[in-house]
Amino acid sequence: MNDHAVVTSNVQKSFLLGATAVGALRGVDLQIPRGQFVAIMGPSGCGKSTLLNLLGAIDVPSRGEIHIDGTELSRLSDDGLADLRRDRIGYVFQFYNLIPTLTARENIEVPLHFAGKSASERRERAMQLLERVGLRDRADHRPSELSGGEQQRVAIARALANKPTLVLLDEPTGDLDSTTGKEIMTLLQNVSVEEKVTLVVATHDAMVASMAQRVVKLRDGRIESDCFAPGGGASPSKDSPAGAA
């Protein structure tokens, strides 16, 4: 289990919306080795986002077990889950979910603040990440002053702030045009290799899936197929800032 970043065992999730019971996941068994880039695909309502929420410890399964980096989530207290989210998991949302009242740099500093880093450490790390994502000169701009692509870059930088081992992305290109989406995914791919981060991306986008090493397809809350993508690679692209360096 320690070789794997993620292990799920018969994970089920259902929830009540008013008087209606919704069964989002109906028994998912999944193992993701460290450093792998996995795309989770499927039609709307198949349970992609629900699975990501469970892996990100922001939701609790109705049944089954989830192990992240060898730690079984159900054994952790609420504070323990928060520590896990802070130190070992990064999350990137479809709609960026940046704090609108904070600047780009401050948004990246938020997880560092909760990790107890000093002000100078936070600033240094935030600027480093902004450099990495090519937004150093936009550090003091608020989200409303950034484009969609720039906001998503900031969100990625925030997700990487505490050097997590697992980064989860829920439709990261869903709100972006194709060019920007490709740029974002290239960046992510490069970062994944350089930082040795396990990437799990929930997506509809075939372009994203084509960049992944492995594609897991969900349907009606179950894994329909799980196969390695033939062309999925982990080399940095020469178009990325890291590649250029």
């Binding site: 990100g56 922001i58 609420d78 504070d79 928060a82 520590d83 989210r85 802070r86 130190d87 999350y91 949302f93 979910n97 940046l98 704090i99 609108p100 938020v110 997880p111 909760f114 990790a115 925030r158 702030a161 505490n162």
Partner: peptide, 16 residues
Amino acid sequence: IREHAILRTVGAKRRH
């Protein structure tokens, strides 16, 4: 509500 949830995803605890 949403902002607080975002903060919790990046490591904030309930007491924060």
